[in-house]
Amino acid sequence: MAPILQVAKLAKRFGGNQALAQVSFSAEKSEITAIIGPNGSGKSTLFNLLASTLVKDSGTILIDAKTVTDKSDHILAKEMLSRTFQDTRIFTYLTIRQHMELALSTKDQSLIKSFFARQENNDDAINNALNWVGLEHDLNEMGANLSYGQTKLLTLAMAIAKNHKILLLDEPVAGVNPKLRKKIAKILQKLRSAGETILLIEHDMDFVLSLADKIIVLDLGKVIMEGTPKQILASKNVLKAYLGR
């Protein structure tokens, strides 16, 4: 079977700075693929190109063997990609229930339908999604009142609940305490066993090595290595780039 995500010769330039040059890699279904690299290596640019919030200069991105590079960000998000953000984002004045309803619903954009629709009770679906991340909280709590850890879990739950083929996680454990870090690692493992395809960026080397099936190392906008955690560990090159030694 072909990989679910295939990226070929992806390039992006900002002014005089080549952020990504001819990046090619692939990610398999039901695996965790991690992208690592030092600051400025192009990880965030790559993520934004995948999510279509940036426009590529050249190259192709295939998801399920279909090219997706001409789709705008929200359509891509609606059809195939769920993502989280590095700076944890939340709807300040919406309740947890409303967050989850937004993630679960796909047809609520029509004003007329929404106008005449009866209030649906989708508490089961909401609780089910929240169970995945183990967030137990009053559904009527506002986003503004949640702790940092709770917002991390809520955004993860939204990404899981939303219709998707691939989960893009942007630094899922950045700024998180060790307890929560362990919890998130467990969630990701559980997701993988359930058949989820996960692509993540992470700074935390240990986290990545313990979790990922495949690791892609970026440096100065290029893929310098690709392999299993074992292969990556064995390679001195990578450690040099990553740790600066």
Binding site: I90, Y93, Q98, E101, L102, D108, T155
Partner: peptide, 21 residues
């Protein structure tokens, strides 16, 4: 639900778009 969507756009447009809105 449409009103909730409007609130999402108000609070965080990027996140709303990431949810496919």
């Amino acid at each position: 639900p449409f009103g909730t969507l409007l609130g999402a756009v108000r609070d965080d447009e990027k996140l709303a778009r990431a949810l496919g809105k």
